[in-house]
Lab assay of single mutants.
Amino acid sequence: TETRTFTDEREARRFEQEARDNGKDVQVRESNGKFEVRVK
């Protein structure tokens, strides 16, 4: 599991989409204006 934290939602979404395109299981959590993207 890899976790990346972004402050920019667009960057978080781009990373999320890229991971999904690669067939990964992705979860995005938002807290305090930060976006935590977990990739399995």
Rank of each mutant, 00 (worst) to 15 (best):
T1V: 13
T1I: 12
E2D: 09
E2N: 08
E2S: 08
T3A: 06
T3F: 12
R4I: 11
T5P: 03
T5F: 15
T5C: 12
T5S: 08
F6W: 03
F6A: 02
F6T: 01
T7G: 07
T7E: 12
T7W: 12
T7M: 10
T7D: 13
D8L: 04
D8H: 05
D8V: 04
E9P: 07
E9A: 07
R10K: 13
R10F: 12
R10L: 13
R10S: 13
E11K: 05
E11W: 03
A12H: 00
A12R: 01
A12F: 04
R13N: 05
R13D: 03
R13H: 07
R13K: 09
R13G: 04
R14Q: 12
R14K: 12
R14Y: 07
R14C: 02
F15C: 08
F15K: 02
F15S: 02
E16R: 01
E16N: 00
E16L: 07
E16F: 08
E16I: 14
Q17T: 07
Q17F: 05
Q17C: 10
E18S: 09
E18N: 08
A19T: 04
A19D: 01
R20K: 09
R20I: 10
D21M: 12
D21Q: 12
D21T: 09
D21S: 12
N22H: 10
N22K: 13
N22F: 08
N22R: 13
N22L: 14
N22C: 12
G23W: 04
G23H: 06
G23P: 00
G23R: 03
K24N: 09
K24R: 10
K24T: 04
K24G: 07
K24I: 08
K24E: 05
D25V: 11
D25N: 09
D25P: 05
V26H: 00
Q27P: 00
Q27S: 13
Q27V: 13
Q27E: 15
V28A: 03
V28P: 00
R29G: 06
E30G: 06
E30M: 12
E30D: 06
E30L: 11
S31I: 15
N32G: 09
N32A: 07
G33D: 04
K34V: 15
K34N: 09
K34A: 09
K34S: 09
K34D: 05
K34W: 11
F35S: 01
F35V: 04
E36G: 00
E36H: 10
E36D: 04
E36V: 13
V37P: 00
V37S: 00
R38W: 14
R38V: 15
V39S: 04
V39K: 01
V39G: 02
V39Q: 03
K40I: 14
K40M: 13
K40L: 14
K40A: 12
